[in-house]
């Protein structure tokens, strides 16, 4: 059972030609130029944090205010960066990705309907 048989859509489209089109390449570039660097950044930041927690106990134990120390601060910053990257991706998708993806999808679906 191949996926084309399962799906009743996508039969009348020349996907290779579409993949090579300027418009699609532009969409792919827009997508990858955001998600790849962002994924690299958060993974590096996460593992830097893990290594600090694992090996730099003294640094993590420095008090910032009251009983609140660097370890807790960096841990909470992991939450902040996760929320921040999430929000950034949503806004990037809404502004940059969705319009391009929708334009191609509408064109292809119209082409298929002919």
């Amino acid at each position: 059972m191949s996926t084309t048989e399962e799906s009743d859509l996508g039969t009348g489209i020349d996907f290779e030609k579409e993949q090579d089109s300027e418009e699609f390449r532009e969409l792919r570039k827009t997508h990858r130029s955001f998600v790849f660097p962002m994924a690299a950044i958060f993974l590096l930041w996460y593992f830097a944090y893990v290594l600090l927690a694992d090996y730099a106990h003294e640094f993590m134990s420095i008090k910032v205010w009251g009983n609140f120390n660097v370890g807790l601060l960096l841990g909470l910053l992991q939450f902040v960066s996760t929320f921040g990257i999430t929000a950034a991706y949503v806004s990037y998708s809404n502004k940059k990705l969705d319009p391009k993806a929708t334009a191609i999808r509408k064109r292809l679906e119209a082409q298929e309907g002919e």
């Binding site: 799906s7 859509l9 996508g10 996907f15 290779e16 579409e18 699609f24 999808r105 292809l108 679906e109």
Partner: peptide, 19 residues
């Protein structure tokens, strides 16, 4: 199959033919 590969990439990013 390069055609399936092209189809997968175009569909994954645009949502053409998604369920």
């Amino acid at each position: 199959d390069p055609i399936k590969s092209a189809e997968m990439e175009v569909r994954s990013l645009t949502g053409v033919g998604a369920e």
